[in-house]
Computed example of a mutant assay.
Amino acid sequence: MMMPSFASLNLQVDELLQAQMWEGKTPKKYSVRLIGYCEKRSILVTAPEFNGRVILAHEGQNIVMRYFSGKNAYAFTTSVLRVCNTPYPYLHVTYPVSIQEMKIRKAVRVKT
């Protein structure tokens, strides 16, 4: 199966992504929202928050981003290029070189 590109995921602004960051040896998962991206340059996401408080990230920090869509889960490793605080906290992270795709269900979930 061919690996998808980030652009082929057709993510929309405000799409929810999961950011896995490490505090020491402990991985922590946070929700972030896609602000936008510049192909092959960087992705902009909101800063991770927990209980209304911004989780501090630092430049060079590795993050595993995950996205769930229908029947598939996607994951890619990125790192923080820049931490920005104005006009609100957000991150520039590296554009992914490769994306892992995994089928998580045989059919799309339907509301009942």
Rank of each mutant, 00 (worst) to 15 (best):
Y67T: 04
M2V: 06
Q18M: 13
L34M: 03
V83S: 09
I63M: 01
S69R: 11
L91A: 04
G70E: 14
W22M: 15
Y95N: 05
A47F: 00
E59R: 02
F68Y: 12
A107V: 11
E101L: 02
S79W: 03
E39F: 04
V83H: 01
R33A: 07
S42K: 08
V80Q: 07
L81G: 04
E49H: 09
S5R: 15
V32Q: 01
A47K: 06
E59L: 03
V80T: 05
Q20D: 15
C84K: 12
P27K: 08
A57P: 02
E23Q: 09
G60P: 04
P87Q: 05
P89G: 03
T46L: 05
V97T: 13
Y37W: 14
P4S: 02
F50I: 11
Q20A: 13
C84G: 01
M1W: 06
A19Y: 07
N85M: 10
Q18W: 06
L16T: 04
S8M: 01
K111D: 01
L34N: 00
P89A: 05
M102K: 06
V108C: 06
I55R: 05
L11C: 08
K25M: 10
N72F: 09
M65G: 05
E39S: 10
N85T: 13
N10H: 10
L17T: 01
M2D: 09
L16E: 06
N62I: 08
S79G: 00
Q12D: 11
R33L: 13
Q18Y: 08
K29W: 06
Q18R: 06
P89H: 05
Q18D: 13
Y90A: 03
Q12M: 11
N85R: 15
